[in-house]
């Protein structure tokens, strides 16, 4: 999972795909390192995506048809860019919405005021 001191593994589990899909939805095409840097930046350093979590997920999303890839030569190496497929775009939208409504619901549930009796 991600390297993260503030949140438990249980809480973060399942959010990685949502984050990756939403980032690609906002940025068009991105490569692996760029994604880790962007997550670090957006979370102000709180969330650090480990390579060990990111790359398996990217490959899985690609195999499932959510992402398409293209390779570009950079210096003496190849850079692999990821981009959402139409299916991936739909899923990004769905996952983000689901997560938003989930957090809103959690907010309501946890925001219980003591009953005035």
């Amino acid at each position: 999972m991600y390297l993260c001191i503030m949140y438990s593994k249980e809480l973060l589990k399942g959010t990685l795909k949502t984050i990756v899909l939403q980032l690609l939805s906002d940025n068009g095409r991105m490569y692996g390192y760029e994604i880790t840097q962007r997550v670090k930046e957006l979370s102000e350093g709180e969330l650090k995506l480990t390579e060990g979590a990111l790359y398996p997920t990217l490959h899985k999303l690609e195999a499932d048809g959510f992402l398409s890839t293209e390779k570009v030569k950079v210096g003496g190496r190849m850079r692999k860019y990821y981009r959402l497929t139409p299916v991936g775009r739909t899923d990004a939208f769905r996952k983000t919405n689901e997560f938003r409504s989930f957090t809103a619901m959690m907010e309501k549930v946890l925001n219980i005021k003591p009953r005035l009796t």
């Binding site: 490569y31 390192y33 880790t36 790359y55 490959h59 190496r77 190849m78």
Partner: peptide, 12 residues
């Protein structure tokens, strides 16, 4: 495919 990608990651 993973090796190639990790090379870019490490280099970056």
């Amino acid at each position: 495919p993973l090796k190639e990608e990790l090379l870019d990651h490490l280099c970056s």
